[in-house]
Write a protein that binds this DNA or RNA. Structure first.
Lengths: 197, 197, 197, 197
DNA sequence: AATGAATGAGATTTCATTCAT
DNA sequence: TATGAATGAAATCTCATTCAT
């Protein structure tokens, strides 16, 4: 076998792992299979990752970073209207999920907690969402008594749940409808301004 | 009949499985361990369940039935006001989760999809919630253009996500605050009546 | 073979065992399955047979006895011509095999040696055949230097091999052709009279 | 390459399997025992054979090939006389059986059908024998109405039966006597030429 | 005598990991 | 660095056998 360049090897292992994890689930996949699919020896696998969970985690961290970047970019491009911003962020993530369904599933689906026994679970932070909500409250655009921490977490659960359900079978909904529904249920829209606001 | 039929072996296996699944996760638990904890032989395990996933599924079905019953009971006891009903339903589930944290986690958490390779995933139906929302629409109490199917699913994802997060560390929130936040974000409250409603 | 009395537990176990052994082979069958098929409890199985091999042996002994009886009867009915007698004996066994294929297979086929680890293998004696050959030699009808012991065993191997092969797929040959070929190769015909005899 | 590839693990597994199968029978032997006797880990066993039946089959195929080769060689060395050729072929197999009793037993004895549930049974073809008989018929040296297919199969059953019986206890007969008896009962000799032949 | 739930030793099989090359 | 044959601990599952009823 040709000697792959180090970085190349790691990339190939990540790609092979992503395919296999998405298709079969973490449990049904083993390091030998990942190495084989990457056309590398098992030994090479262990030279790059301590075990399959380490590879999974690497995949998840990458995906999380990519999603974070997509949200940031979308917000940078969006106008000042709060609901426009909410919508832009959701749309960005939905586009990401559609473009990288395996990565999204492996990061947020069945595999999300697969590495639990091998280290902390990788997950999206609810902080940015909470911060945005807090700002709306400060501006009087959101009910002041809403617990923004809880609301942010709740929203994220909802977003993830819906995108995962959609990816299982894309005919279940249109991306636009999904984004619309999620926007409407977003705390910024939902737990709207105080009475009369 | 045969040997003093260890008073309901099946019940003991279910109880042992629940403890172990909740504590260690499906992957770290094996049939031997479950049988041992139930103080039964391995063979007895296999006489009752085809494998650990069958036991897990039985546990999940039970929990789902119990939650359904709790919601039904709560609604039967609640008044006619829509938001009262929403709140009653949420509160009932939160109480169930608090009273049976292992069962709730094993049904909706990490273990939810553990049996995926062994049969369909057991999950709560979004139909009752969707039906309730549809009724509110019919009565003009909910924006007519909301996609109630999507909204119902989205709400359920949120509820589950929050309760799971809460159970991980109950000091993170008060049950009342949780119920309050979930109620506020429930489609019935959130995607409220059209302007002026 | 003897008519099993349907209500006798032992008979029912034998019948069930015969069906299962013939269909699945000794290895794939267990005492629980036999008892179940006989519509009896496992305990009842053990009250009658020490294990599945004991049942198998009983089946084989029965079959052997029935075949012996069929040969004796056929010879009693046959005329004095040596080749007529050979043919009659072969035909009798072929008829038995056709009428009781499971019993024949279970006695001489795959299952023949299945109980080897649990006691001596049950097999047909070559003595009667050897004795008949010896008599032919005494009458000068068979080459005097033929080793009748070996020849008798050899013949029996051949007969069993052919009948088993035939039972696997009865379209492979006609019973008459089979009997004819076996008769021609029988030592009494084959290793015929001394030169010029 | 990898770790000092234990000089042909596969060869050692085959040898170990042969010893154990011959001594104890397929049922009493397990993959652990074979690996242990070959001084290899169990995993190595499974890296080479899918299960003990695959190893058994490999052993049987080898033996069959060796016997075929021995017959071919013996016939190449033999003169043109039909009975000399028959005798030469039988003698070659008898010598093989004597030299490799375990292989012969494992191929034709109890173990012959042990792998039946795991694939087709390996067995010696009766074609060459049938072809040889047909040729004798063509040359008028064998009764024209003998069914050569049946006769060939019948002969092979006989040969195998006798060699197996002999190997069980070699004092039962001399190799020469065995070969002599088998030759005399071989269809080529037995169902000889029509009257006057 | 008949029952059949319970048992647990043992067989089968997988797979993370090592290490000589 | 890369390799991949070898490893063996551990999980899964079967089934002959027991024995209280």
């Amino acid at each position: 076998m040709a000697r792959p360049r180090i970085d190349d090897a790691e990339e190939r292992l990540l790609a092979a792992g992503l395919q296999l994890f998405a298709r079969l689930g973490t449990e049904r996949v083993n390091s030998n299979a990942i190495a084989k699919r990457a056309r590398l020896g098992v030994g090479t696998f262990y030279a790059h990752f301590s075990d399959k969970y380490a590879l999974l985690r690497a995949l998840q961290l990458r995906t999380l970073a990519a999603i974070r970047a997509a949200r940031v970019q979308a917000l940078a491009d969006a106008g000042p209207d709060p609901m426009d911003r909410v919508r832009a962020s959701i749309a960005a993530v939905a586009r990401f999920a559609e473009a990288h369904p395996e990565a999204y599933r492996v990061t947020f689906g069945r595999e999300r907690t697969a590495a639990a026994a091998h280290g902390p679970i990788v997950s999206e932070s609810s902080r940015p969402t909470a911060a945005a909500l807090r700002e709306l409250q400060a501006r009087g655009l959101l009910a002041a008594d809403l617990d923004v921490e809880l609301a942010a977490r709740a929203y994220l659960s909802m977003e993830v749940g819906m995108l995962l359900w959609w990816l299982e079978d894309k005919t279940r909904a249109q991306r636009a409808g999904l984004v619309e529904t999620l926007s409407r249920l977003h705390p910024a829209a939902a737990a709207g301004p105080p009475v009369g606001g």
